[in-house]
């Protein structure tokens, strides 16, 4: 499992990775590690999926595109069929079944903002079910802070 060095890396490097010639050397120095040790540790954490990625996190909305959370109330008997109909769209970035009358929650993502509503309408045509659009109006999230 994770040792103290792994925890130090996960907790200390969730942002602020340097934009310098030897960024791992710079980041390693701030954590009291050697460059190659840090690279090896990150590779191992990626290998075991403790880190799902190491690199830049992009915001699609700022690229001129958009993300939009959507919700649907899907009759239980049709759930698998509707999940398949929704998931076949490339614009569906993730989709979760949740315990609620609104039981299907998915995110539409596109680098073209106008694509979002068009896709939602298309899903409604395919399934006969209303898609509730829940775009973010305001973001209150203050940085990531997962503790390893």
């Amino acid at each position: 499992m994770l040792d103290d060095t792994d925890r130090k890396i996960i907790n200390g490097l969730q942002g602020g990775f340097p934009l310098s010639e030897r960024p791992y050397a710079e980041a390693a120095a701030s954590l009291g590690l050697e460059e190659d040790e840090l690279i090896g540790r990150i590779a191992a954490l990626r290998e075991t999926s403790v880190l799902s990625r190491f690199g830049p996190m992009f915001d699609a909305a700022k690229m001129g595109g958009a993300f939009c959370l959507c919700a649907m109330a899907v009759p239980e008997a049709r759930f698998e069929e509707v999940a398949e109909a929704v998931n076949k769209y490339d614009q569906v970035a993730h989709n979760y079944e949740r315990a609620h009358a609104l039981n299907m929650w998915f995110v539409l993502a596109s680098d073209a903002a106008e694509d979002i509503e068009a896709t939602a309408e298309s899903i409604t045509r395919d399934t006969g079910l209303e898609v509730l659009l829940m775009p973010k109006l305001e973001e209150y999230f203050i940085g990531l802070k997962v503790d390893a």
Partner: peptide, 13 residues
């Protein structure tokens, strides 16, 4: 770009 660094997997933690 929101940030550059480690993206942890909640489940694995």
């Amino acid at each position: 770009i929101r940030r550059i660094g480690a993206v942890p997997n909640h489940y694995k933690l």
